[in-house]
């Protein structure tokens, strides 16, 4: 059974259909990319999966449980993490605090214990700090640990965004254009991180415009156009698909 199953999902805004009858299935440990022209509905699809939008029709199953109408935090608690396309970090907090926020639901102590900083509070903070430090280490963010996120350059903030999603210890990671606007070097780093995340057993759904990257690293690719899946398959199959070529390069005269 697929880890994530999106079944026949339709999402409309007023009369405009952002998604119409989209289905996809992602197996545990896969790296699946979603591509398509601007406005094809890629980000809408991620928003539906992560609970920011609720579809008009269809349903979404994660590990056999229906999550279609759950709120974003309930979906996050079930193991789906998301890195946003337009960086949505907490700019008034440090990198460390941003990542510690991802551990929010894992920190088990009460208000009184926190206010008196007694009992489990310190031990829990330290235990989760260790996990966060592993992510910092992994994403090579050591120099920025105590820097305010708002003051960091764009490329680093993108990396913090992915790191924060990783700090949630997700089973499924949704990455929305993690490489947009990056330099070639930063892109190569990011690809390395994504491959490493996948190698550690986390399922990854990636939205990306750089087709070179997508074709190189994906197990399977879904192509969206005008809110519909127009092709699905291994990268080399998708690249040959005439409908995909049409969507990307237009109809031949």
């Amino acid at each position: 059974m697929a880890q994530l199953a999106v079944e026949n999902v339709t999402l409309t805004f007023g009369g405009v259909a952002a998604l119409s009858g989209v289905s996809l299935a992602v197996e545990r440990g896969e790296l699946v990319s979603i591509i398509g022209p601007n406005g094809a509905g890629k980000t809408s699809l991620l928003n539906v999966i992560s609970g920011f939008y609720h579809p008009k029709q269809g349903r979404i199953l994660f590990e056999g449980e229906e999550i279609t109408h759950l709120s974003p935090h309930a979906i996050t608690q079930r193991g789906i993490a998301r890195a946003f396309q337009n960086i949505e970090l907490f700019s008034g907090l440090t990198v460390l605090e941003n990542l510690m926020l991802a551990r929010h639901t894992h920190l088990r102590y009460g208000l009184l214990q926190a206010g008196l900083f007694y009992g489990r509070a310190l031990a829990e903070e330290v235990r989760n700090r260790r996990l966060v430090e592993e992510v910092i280490d992994f994403m090579e963010l050591e120099p920025y640990r105590k820097a305010l996120v708002g003051n960091l350059p764009y490329g680093v903030r993108k990396r913090v965004e992915v790191a924060r999603a990783l700090a949630l210890s997700p089973k499924l990671l949704l990455l929305d254009e993690p490489m947009a606007g990056m330099t070639l070097e930063e892109k190569e780093d990011m690809v390395r991180f994504i491959l490493e995340i996948r190698a550690r057993g986390t399922t990854v759904i990636l939205i990306e415009h750089d087709l070179g990257v997508v074709m190189d690293i994906s197990d399977r690719v879904y192509v969206l156009d005008f809110g519909q899946v127009i092709a699905e398959g291994r990268p080399e199959e998708v690249a040959k698909n005439p409908r995909v070529q049409e969507a990307y390069m237009g109809v031949e005269a």
Binding site: Q77, F90, S91, L93, L101, G115, E125
Partner: peptide, 29 residues
């Protein structure tokens, strides 16, 4: 009491909803 809260999840959560409550939602809170 409040200074202690600031170094725990309660204090961080306050700033999180101030800075970006959409992202706070995505953090599972």
């Amino acid at each position: 009491f409040f200074r202690n809260l600031l170094r725990t999840k309660y204090g961080r959560a306050l700033v999180a909803v101030r800075d970006n409550d959409r992202a706070a939602d995505a953090m599972g809170m």
